[in-house]
């Protein structure tokens, strides 16, 4: 029988929604028993949130001051120490999981399946390669522990309704001191989170300046949407890096994605292929973004956006 350990992600007060999506992926491994491991300095707030996810039967809570910040070099040996009895160890394909899980896999001496997007069998997964232009079905050896990251945009969040036991676990392995947390500049915002929002409005190079990019914020606020950006817009300094959507930014699957002044390079499209409905606004009727848009509107964004906002008022 499969026993799955999920490494949960959180910020000390809130469980990251990626964890609930990993639970859904794990539950698709037939007959799997699903546990969540949490690492932090104080997990009193977060552990109950993991325990409440339907499908989770146990939460392993590893509280340690050394775990105050998620440093892969510090967490990896602890994950390995817990991994013994499990057949599968999963983490989210967020920067947290992408940083940590390969280190875990290497310590375990096993390969990793990156970005699992569907479960075709306990050891068989689909994953995207070449910026999502080739989907590969991979089969891992059943004789070894399977380590994978889960492409969160491909799985719905597990619902509430679980009542897992929370078990405080002491992990006594030597932890390195060669890696030290210094600071994090989180862009605190009241806007919906890009990775989980139902609606996303994104702006590209065409916005032309940071000031003009306010048009995107303003439309997003009117629609109750999160804000995204193309790499060109981020590189030019119109939007901050955590808003980048695409192969090397965030992969998202909102109900509605509105791309404004974005040409539709393959690296950008990779990030939005799973969006339910895509709207594109671009002055070039030949822009590749129109090839995947459900609704396209050709025109100058500086005329269209004010009009659009007015009609939503």
């Amino acid at each position: 029988m499969a026993t799955v350990l999920i490494v949960g992600e959180h910020d000390g007060s809130k469980l990251n929604p990626s964890t609930a999506r990993c639970v859904t992926c794990a539950a698709q491994i037939s007959g799997a028993e699903v546990h969540v491991a949490l690492f932090g300095a104080d997990l009193a707030a977060v552990a109950p949130q993991a325990a409440a996810l339907k499908g989770v039967t146990k939460v392993l809570s590893v509280a340690n001051p050394a775990n105050a910040h998620p440093l892969a070099a510090v967490l990896a040996p602890q994950v390995v120490a817990l991994a013994g009895p499990y057949t599968h160890v999963l983490g989210p394909s967020t920067t947290f999981g992408k940083d940590l899980m390969p280190r875990v896999a290497a310590l375990l001496g096993v390969p990793q399946v990156s970005d699992a997007m569907s479960v075709d069998g306990p050891y068989k997964f689909k994953r995207p390669t070449y910026a999502g232009n080739a989907i590969v079905t991979v089969e891992a050896p059943e004789s070894r522990k399977l380590v994978a990251t889960v492409r969160t945009a491909s799985f719905e969040a597990a619902p509430q309704g679980g009542q897992a036991a929370v078990e405080a676990v002491a992990v006594s392995v030597p932890l390195p001191t060669h890696t030290r947390f210094v600071s994090v500049s989180a862009a605190n915002s009241d806007r919906p989170d890009l990775q989980t929002a139902a609606k996303v409005v994104s702006g590209g190079r065409a916005l032309g300046s940071k000031e003009n990019f306010q048009l995107i914020y303003s439309l997003a606020d009117r629609m109750g949407a999160a804000v995204g950006a193309s790499r060109a817009a981020v590189d030019a300094g119109y939007a901050s890096n955590e808003l980048q959507v695409g192969q090397t930014g965030k992969i998202i699957a909102p109900e509605l994605y509105v791309a404004i002044g974005i040409s539709g390079a393959i690296q950008h499209l990779t990030g939005i292929k799973d969006a339910r409905t895509i709207v594109a606004i671009n002055k070039d009727a030949e822009a590749p973004i129109f090839e995947i848009a459900d609704y396209g509107l050709v025109g100058d964004l500086f005329q269209i956006l004010p009009e659009l906002e007015k009609s939503l008022a």
């Binding site: 390969p111 399946v113 068989k124 995207p128 390669t129 999502g132 232009n133 080739a134 989907i135 590969v136 079905t137 991979v138 089969e139 891992a140 050896p141 292929k273 895509i278 709207v279 129109f290 995947i292 848009a293 459900d294 609704y295 396209g296 509107l297 050709v298 025109g299 269209i304 009009e307 659009l308 009609s311 939503l312």
Partner: peptide, 27 residues
């Protein structure tokens, strides 16, 4: 190969969308 690649396929194509004439059409 320790992760055996059993099949490589193109991604599922998105169905072709429509062009709208103006903002009112989009809304």
């Amino acid at each position: 190969e320790t992760l055996k690649s059993v099949l490589v396929e193109p991604p599922k194509p998105r169905s072709k969308g429509v062009m709208v004439k103006d903002v009112a059409g989009l809304v």
